[in-house]
Amino acid sequence: MTAIVEVTDLTKRYGSLAAVDDASFVVREHAITGLLGRNGAGKTTLMQLITGQELATSGEIRLFGQHPLENAAVLSRTCFIKESQTYPDGFKGEHVLKVASWVFPHWDEQLARELVDEFRVPLDRRMKKLSRGQASAIGVVVGIASRAELTIFDEPYAGLDAVARQAFYDRLLADYAEHPRTIVMSTHLIDEVADLLEHVLVIDEGRLIIDAPAEELRGSATTIAGKHADVEAFSRGRDVLDADSLGAFASVTVAGLTPAERAAAAAAGLEVGPVSLQQLVIGRTRGTARQEVAS
């Protein structure tokens, strides 16, 4: 396995706030990695550190095996599309695409034109006059057509409607399948991308709390629902991520059940259901996890 990004004990402090708190992980070559977490969890800071835009307080970052900071050899192979991207005054979409075609060695102009048509972005209007969705679409076009060996999308879809977002995922997936590259996707629309991800990183309050293959996370948690007393009896001593009750009915989300345990729960008359990646992340990051079933 080749590590395109390798982060070791990385910390970034702003005053007393640790935006990134002692994170260590790798991003594998040619995988689509999801960087998930709530707003303000530290996702953007982490990606800015990786791309040498922010300076780390402590810890190590390797991009293609090298320090990213001021390193043209590795930064030129990287494309970082972020929601908050600013553009020079008076820049129009056509100018953004022109500059991108100069800067990215693997730029595909024809693909860019196709994507512009698909997203219906006006290229002859100033970036400032575009709607949020149109500006986001320009970023998405650049991100896909750059074919950069490491492409990072940081919530690239602000203002894009569901149709356009689906088009983004479909085009990205299709182009990735034909031209494999390393993709990091930071998002809080987890359900939409869950099936695209090969690996999942979850960050919460600056700390990396999940670092696992997506397949491993699927089915790693289970909802158990049924009579209050039964649910309580079953969940006692287990890793409860989330709990809820309505009168005599209770529901818990439990991590790490074996198939046999699930079968036992079902045999005991409890409802056993799957937990989506999104629900799992919500359970892990909402700060009220591990509460007892209210009694």
């Binding site: 399948a177 034909e178 991800l197």
Partner: peptide, 18 residues
């Protein structure tokens, strides 16, 4: 093909391959 399966099911090609 793997890519067709990935595109159709909207899943990661590595998953389709698996």
């Amino acid at each position: 093909s793997i890519n067709e399966l990935a595109a159709f099911h909207r899943i990661n090609p590595a998953t389709a391959l698996k």
